[in-house]
């Protein structure tokens, strides 16, 4: 089998559990996988930010601690050149298949933290223009890797172009999302990257207002 990232041939690990399920096998070679940095304890128990001690980070304290609208974010990787290159080719160049690099790890982390929530997955949406440009939504690809129902309950009313704004501007900016349908079960918001947590909380606030009791997030990268 060829590694879907570097295209080199490698031997896939086969276990009894995936013997008849080729889709469940990790399509990434060890070389490529070893270049990714997995987040390790201690982290902020709320947002997964790497910490010296497992205490609530300053950002999360300012989000209100226990009154924070987000129950928890789980991320898998920290940001480095290797993952940046993959994300760049996947999301911006549009190599749709590369999302599968993360399928295996995403499912593993989901099972570890969120398995018993009976939640639905809601991907953070792209604007119409971005969707047209890229042809797919990376958050939706990720949500599709989870063994739970996916609900398209959000649309984006403002475009993603926010990188030039300062952090406070971004935090106080208008909510870029709109809720398009009601949800009653717990929700796991899915996105590729958690930076300030603002995007996720914008989405979470709409869900909370609409009566959702628990809102979690699952993101690939904690930057």
């Amino acid at each position: 089998m060829h590694c879907i990232n570097c295209h080199e041939v490698f031997m896939q690990q086969t276990f009894w559990s995936n013997l008849f399920l080729p889709d469940k096998r990790n399509p990434v070679c060890d070389d490529c996988r070893n270049k990714l940095i997995f987040l390790t304890e201690p982290v902020c128990p709320k947002c997964c930010r790497p910490m010296d001690k497992p205490d609530l980070c300053l950002d999360c304290q300012s989000w209100g601690g226990n009154s924070d609208i987000l129950n928890k974010n789980i991320s898998i990787f920290s940001y480095n050149q290797a993952i940046k290159d993959i994300i760049n080719r996947w999301k911006y160049r549009g190599d749709y298949l590369l999302g599968k690099v993360f399928q295996y790890e995403l499912a593993r982390v989901f099972n570890q933290h969120y398995k018993n929530l009976e939640a639905v997955a809601i991907p953070i949406p792209l604007s119409k223009e971005r969707m047209l440009e890229r042809g797919f939504n990376q958050a939706e690809s990720l949500a599709g890797f989870l063994d739970i129902p996916m609900v398209h309950a959000l649309t984006r009313i403002h475009s993603e172009k926010q990188s030039k704004k300062s952090r406070t501007e971004r935090v106080t900016a208008q909510n870029p999302f709109r809720l398009t349908r009601s949800v009653i079960s717990p929700v796991i918001l899915v996105d590729d990257i958690y930076t300030t947590g603002t995007t996720i909380r914008h989405a979470a606030s709409l869900l909370k207002e609409a009566g959702v009791k628990e809102v979690y997030a699952l993101t690939l990268i904690r930057s």
Partner: peptide, 24 residues
């Protein structure tokens, strides 16, 4: 080569992964 979704109708489209850095 790989397939990716194309449009809202559930259609799948084949694309070339080899030269993707030059635009899909």
């Amino acid at each position: 080569f790989a397939y990716m979704p194309c449009g809202d109708q559930g259609k799948k489209c084949l694309y070339c992964r080899k030269c993707i850095v030059m635009g899909r």
